[in-house]
Amino acid sequence: MSEKNQDFQQALANRLTDAAYPELPEHYQGKVRDAYDLPDGRRIMVATDRQSAFDRILAAVPHKGQVLNQTARFWFEKTADICPNHVLSFPDPNVVIGRKLTMLPIEMVVRDYMTGSTETSIWPMYKRGERTLYGHDFPEGLSKNHKLRETILTPTTKAAQGDHDAPITAAEIVEQGILTKDVWDELARLSLALFARGREIAAQHGLILVDTKYEFGVDDQGRITLADEIHTPDSSRYWIAETYQDRMAQGLEPESLDKEFLRLWVSERCDPYKDDIPDIPDETLEIFSEKYINLFERVTGETFKRESFDQPLRDRIRENLAKILPEYF
């Protein structure tokens, strides 16, 4: 076995799938992150290696949680002048401690391209013959992966875990009293400004930021605050700019550095909303893991520091949490 293969086998064995620490209070397990709410208003979020898509867990991907957390850290720092965020500290490569927020019940999705493979993506809707999507009118004759005439917002409702997010229009959000018009207008302004910053920085590194989603909450002073993650390969699509035109001319999918790779792999083999997900081979997980690491390194200009195999990831995280929260450990 080559050294590279041996390292990947070790990484497979060291994946973080369970981040439940009974010492900490108010545990909540999401699809990807485990969270804890402390009495003093702080929220601990641990990014695991669980990989979700189609509203279900598909696999566990080596290095994935660290990539997510550290990519989000880069973008939180690069956009702090646009919108306040929840971040207080990063005590571990897989952990962020933030302010607990009152979360707003809408996910803000921003799109620059006609693409996607999930039920809430605009390409499957358009392909079915729909021409008014999220309150936007689209002309005939559009094709997959082409740039839209303008950047659009396509918000969705937030579903409970295991349920599906649902498309909704800006007008419906206000009419149904989900958000006031002033709050919607501010979320729209912030989302477009964040996306513009992301698109600009991505382009400087040879990447196309295709689309993304943002989640916002309100802090105890009533300020709208960015939460969860930002511009990660889980929450965004990224394409490699230098090969985009050639691949489009050949009728190929763009080279992606995001979870669309795994979505397409699954969709080619089953109906991910109805069928059992087939086992994903280790070789496919390795390709996927390297895409995430490549994305991190391209965006940040930093070399990704892979975890040591001296101890399980779960134990390292526990040690680092105990250093800053000794009263719980």
Rank of each mutant, 00 (worst) to 15 (best):
Gly206Glu: 04
Thr79Leu: 01
Leu24Pro: 12
Lys274Phe: 04
Arg223Ser: 11
Ile122Phe: 01
Leu148Asn: 10
Ile178His: 08
Pro91Gln: 11
Val183Asp: 10
Asp185His: 12
Ser256Tyr: 06
Arg263Lys: 12
Thr180Ile: 06
Thr115Phe: 00
Glu140Pro: 14
Ala188Thr: 12
Pro326Met: 01
Leu16Trp: 09
Thr132Glu: 15
Pro254Thr: 09
Ala19Asp: 12
Cys270Met: 07
Thr180Leu: 00
Leu190Arg: 15
His136Asn: 10
Asn69Trp: 07
Thr284Phe: 00
Ser143Tyr: 15
Ala322Asp: 12
Leu16Glu: 13
Gly222Cys: 05
Leu285Gln: 09
Ile277Leu: 04
Ile201Ser: 06
Ala13Asn: 15
Ile201Tyr: 10
Asp7Gly: 08
Leu24Ala: 09
Lys274Pro: 00
Asp165Met: 05
Asp258Ala: 05
Leu148Lys: 08
Arg197Ser: 02
Ser89Ile: 05
Gly251Trp: 10
Met108Tyr: 08
Tyr28Gly: 08
Lys291Tyr: 07
Leu295Glu: 04
Tyr244Gly: 11
Glu253Pro: 08
Asp18His: 14
Val95Asp: 14
Ser308Met: 01
Lys305Gln: 13
Glu186Thr: 11
Lys259Arg: 10
Pro254Val: 05
Pro167His: 08
Pro281Ser: 01
Ala203Lys: 03
Trp239Glu: 11
Ala170Gly: 06
Val266Cys: 01
